[in-house]
Amino acid sequence: HMTFVALYDYVASGETDLSFKKGERLQIVNNTEGDWWLAHSLTTGRTGYIPSNYVAPSD
């Protein structure tokens, strides 16, 4: 899985979304859904959809 880092805080707007904090590391499970990607937080262990423009590839 690709690892990304959150650029901003995001508060989930629905049950399927994943809240995260700036700097949180996320594994992308599925990024074929356009602007919303299914991600797994390496910080909280939770999985949900995130806005793709809130994250950047982590080196």
Rank of each mutant, 00 (worst) to 15 (best):
K21H: 12
T16A: 09
W36C: 05
L38D: 01
A12Y: 02
E33M: 14
T47S: 10
S58M: 15
R25T: 15
V11K: 11
R46T: 07
H40E: 09
V11Q: 13
E33Q: 15
E33H: 13
H1N: 15
A56K: 10
G34D: 13
N31S: 13
L26C: 01
N53Y: 11
L7N: 04
V29F: 10
L26M: 10
A6Q: 00
V11D: 10
I28W: 02
E33C: 08
H1C: 08
D59S: 13
A12D: 02
Q27S: 12
E24M: 01
N53R: 13
D35E: 12
K22A: 12
K22E: 07
G48W: 01
A39T: 03
E24K: 00
W36K: 10
V29C: 08
G45A: 04
G34C: 07
L38F: 14
L42G: 04
A12N: 05
R46H: 10
D59Q: 13
G14E: 10
S58N: 10
G45H: 11
F20C: 03
G34T: 10
H40C: 09
N31W: 14
F4K: 02
A12P: 05
K22C: 05
L26W: 03
V29Y: 12
G34H: 12
I50L: 04
N53I: 11
N53F: 09
V29N: 06
W37Q: 04
L38Q: 05
N30W: 09
N53C: 08
V5K: 05
E15K: 11
V11C: 08
T32I: 12
L18N: 02
A39N: 00
S41K: 02
P51D: 05
Y10K: 03
M2G: 12
L7V: 07
P51N: 07
G23N: 05
Q27N: 09
D17E: 15
G34P: 13
A56M: 11
T16K: 15
W37A: 03
A39M: 12
Y10C: 03
D35Y: 12
P51W: 05
L26F: 15
A6F: 00
G48M: 02
E24I: 00
T3R: 05
T3K: 05
V11E: 13
W36I: 07
Y10M: 03
K21T: 12
V5F: 08
Y49Q: 05
T47N: 06
D35K: 11
S13Q: 15
G48R: 01
N31M: 14
D35V: 11
H1Y: 15
W37T: 03
E33W: 10
I50D: 01
R25M: 15
G23R: 01
V29A: 08
E24A: 01
G14Q: 13
G34Y: 08
V55T: 04
Y49I: 07
L18S: 03
R25L: 12
E15S: 14
K22W: 04
R25H: 11
I28A: 08
Y10F: 08
S41I: 02
K21M: 12
W36Y: 11
N31G: 13
F20A: 01
N31L: 12
I50F: 03
D59F: 12
D35C: 07
T44E: 03
T44C: 02
D59V: 13
L7S: 04
A12F: 03
V55M: 07
S52R: 11
A6S: 05
Q27P: 01
S13P: 07
D59P: 12
G23W: 05
Q27V: 15
E24S: 01
R46C: 06
F20K: 01
G34N: 13
E33P: 09
R25C: 07
G45W: 04
G23V: 00
L7R: 04
S58V: 14
A39D: 00
E24N: 02
Y10Q: 01
L38W: 11
H1V: 14
N53D: 10
H40I: 14
M2F: 11
N31I: 10
F20Y: 01
V55N: 03
V11N: 11
P51A: 03
T3H: 14
P51S: 03
Y10W: 06
W36F: 10
Q27F: 10
W36S: 06
V29P: 04
F20S: 00
D35P: 09
G14L: 10
A56R: 11
A12L: 03
V5D: 04
P51T: 02
Y10D: 00
G23L: 02
S52N: 07
I28P: 10
A56C: 08
T32F: 09
T47G: 06
W36P: 05
T43M: 09
N53E: 11
P57A: 11
L7W: 03
P51L: 06
F20D: 00
N30K: 11
Y8I: 06
H40K: 14
Y49R: 08
T43N: 12
A6W: 00
S52L: 04
P57V: 11
V11T: 14
Y49S: 04
V55S: 03
P57W: 10
K22D: 01
L18K: 02
L42D: 06
G23S: 03
D59C: 08
L26N: 00
R25V: 15
F4L: 07
I50W: 00
G23C: 04
H40A: 10
Y54D: 01
G14D: 09
P57Y: 09
Y10T: 01
Y10S: 01
K22M: 08
P51E: 01
L7T: 05
Y54V: 06
Y54H: 10
W37V: 09
S13C: 07
L42P: 10
Y49V: 06
Y8F: 13
Y49K: 06
I28T: 03
R46G: 10
S19G: 08
W36A: 05
D35N: 13
V55G: 03
L38Y: 12
W37P: 02
E15G: 08
T32W: 09
T16H: 13
E33A: 12
G23T: 02
F20V: 08
S52G: 07
Y8P: 00
Y8H: 10
K21P: 01
Q27W: 15
V5S: 05
P51H: 06
A39L: 01
V55A: 06
M2C: 07
S52F: 09
G34I: 10
W36L: 08
D9Q: 03
Y49G: 02
V5Y: 10
Y54P: 02
G34F: 09
S13V: 12
R46A: 13
S41H: 12
H1Q: 15
K21I: 09
